[in-house]
Design a protein around this nucleic acid. Structure first.
Lengths: 347, 347
DNA sequence: TCAAAAATGATTGACGTCTGTCTTTTTTAG
DNA sequence: CTAAAAAAGACAGACGTCAATCATTTTTGA
């Protein structure tokens, strides 16, 4: 019942170990008929190379790099912690993960960093996507050097990247929209979207998604989105102004960051607060949900994402077909929040 | 920058490899001061045993057993498929998973099976929990034999089981309740819970959870639960009767199985259908959600569960502290369904 | 102080694979 | 038919750990 070894394969194929090895590792210099016999024996015995023994023998270890945005967004720091934690766990699997911080939302700076990577530096790269032609160039260059790159959180670099691991933002927007619709049951209402920047594709996608769903109910009117440009004081001022100007707002969809200020304002509002949906479970948003200041959080489960990303990177590095990563936006209500420790990994 | 080996540790501790090995593997016969020196060196160098080399050397492989309910519930067949799929993947990690089918919802039959397990048969067992004193006994016996067992989906066997991997059903019920509450916004309503059997603890837990949340809104009345005892025709008859008797039902919470019949009936109802929440994403429930016959599915993400379970089993078998498994009930709306292929694993 | 016991050291052959070298056999071409 | 080239085989030393044996040193107690 032992798994067959390459020795078994060689014996079954009637060739020497050397020849079996030459076939398995495509070293060349083997007659066609021997190749076939070995291939056939592999098939017949169901031989699978012991990847750990192989890695041990060739002293292989996996060097991966994560390029993560640096900034005081809580989401980014959660992301970073998650990667650090997983990095610790994967050490036992010979996976060494290095984290490189780059300025947040700066595709050019990211491209610069990626352009500095040398052939020997790592086996695979993961980066948080952003839109930029130079970024695409940089990723293509990496691909040319044999270093695959995967985009995280936000897709980018078109076909140059080996894979995207993250949610579909239109789906996330639709989900938020569905929740808001649901919460209005048959009442009419006015929904206020708030986003960082209309120029950011992810934000537009979420907005579009929400609009799609909300448009199905004529009684719900989607107001012009507030653009807060990642500045808390802008959130404070615009939102306060908007709520004053239109006291009939029944729903708020906060698409981007700046939730701290938003929650502050919600806390000061009188009794029938608008139904509020936010993105990302953070130390700020969680208590707001628990105390009922907001009603739902759409989360992308960074722990899952990172885990999938590393799995994909390993598969790619091993030249296997990477697993299908199907990251779906999750809905947190007051009741189904994960345990406090929980970003999914070991305590 | 190579990771330190046990040779390095021995050298740093000023002892022979043998002694370091004796300390590491607790073989005894080492003077206290040597033990300390080795421990210190391990600490100082940050030595971590190369678990793959170790497994290779001792020809260790992990034999796990899953005891899964056999039946025509779609959830169970999904579960089975998920285990099979993960089993295939983990093969590369020297994990051999055997699936044993037991009659569904029959704790005694399960206990019987577990009692048959011999010391050499496997390293760890996972079973879908059920309530029974004999089951607890069987699990205790296994523990005594050095075979840890973990409960899946439904917790059982008290402290005898090494870990529980699954959702908290009260949380699931609360989540369903929250959704229903949310969908009523300020309207009043009458909620009809439907469950398999009041005697089943998981079903009670879900019901209790939903009640807790719904009780917060006096305008929502929770009707007496329909008990359908896993018989489709009972679902058809009781539900039809109940809806006739009380046309004012605005919400349905289906706690257990039998959703096929439920969906049939919902399909025949006139326009303002009650808001319906079901459990488990299956080939039956999914199209119902997509077509709007039902409004939400609470899912326990079996793929995640199985993955966590196997991780936990491996950790336990390696005598490490198992990772904290934090399985949270997920809400699926029409929009955030996973890809069709997707039960989370590779395609 | 000496023998017994305890502790330590030295060494070896696995585990399954990789990689290199060197020899032998077979095939091919002239 | 012969020389060269191609293919195949044999073998050995790694990788890091385990597990066992045997020899040597140190400690202990009478």
């Amino acid at each position: 019942m032992r798994n067959p070894t390459l020795h078994d394969v060689a014996r079954a194929a009637g060739v020497s170990y050397s020849t079996a090895d030459r076939v398995l590792n495509e070293r060349g210099g083997v007659a066609e008929k021997s190749v076939l016999r070995v291939r056939h024996a592999i098939e017949k015995l169901g031989y699978r190379r012991d990847i750990h023994a192989a890695n041990l023998s060739r002293r292989r270890s996996y060097a991966f790099r994560f390029y993560l945005p640096h900034g005081d967004h809580s989401f980014f720091s959660i992301l970073r912690q998650t990667v650090e934690q997983q990095a610790r766990q994967r050490l036992a699997d010979r996976i060494a993960i290095a984290i490189h911080e780059v300025p947040a939302l700066d595709a050019e700076a990211l491209a610069d960093q990626l352009l500095l990577i040398g052939r020997q530096d790592c086996d695979c790269v993961a980066f948080v996507g952003a839109d930029s032609a130079r970024l695409t160039q940089a990723v293509s260059r990496l691909a040319g050097m044999g270093i695959p790159a995967i985009s995280l959180i936000s897709d980018a670099a078109g076909d140059a990247r080996a894979q995207y691991v993250g949610i579909d933002n239109r789906v996330a927007g639709r989900t938020a929209g569905r929740l808001i619709r649901l919460a209005h049951s048959r009442r009419s209402g006015r929904i206020l979207p708030i986003l960082g920047k209309l120029g950011v594709r992810d934000h537009r996608d979420r907005l579009d998604g929400a609009r799609e769903v909300l448009a199905e109910t004529p009684a719900l009117q989607v107001l012009a989105p507030l653009e807060i440009l990642d500045r808390p004081e802008r959130m404070r001022d615009s939102l306060t102004a908007a709520l004053h100007a239109d006291p009939g707002v029944t729903g708020i969809y906060s698409i981007g960051a700046g939730n701290r200020a938003l929650i502050d304002i919600l806390g000061r509002l009188a009794a029938p607060r608008p139904f509020a949906v936010l993105h990302e479970l953070t130390p700020q948003t969680r208590p707001a949900l628990e105390s009922g200041l907001i009603d739902a959080i759409i989360d992308q489960k960074p722990a899952e994402e990172i885990r999938s990303a590393i799995d994909a990177m390993k598969a790619i590095a091993d030249r296997q077909t990477p697993p299908a990563t199907d990251i779906t936006p999750t809905i947190y209500l007051k009741d189904n929040l994960p345990g406090p420790a929980g970003n999914g990994g070991p305590a």
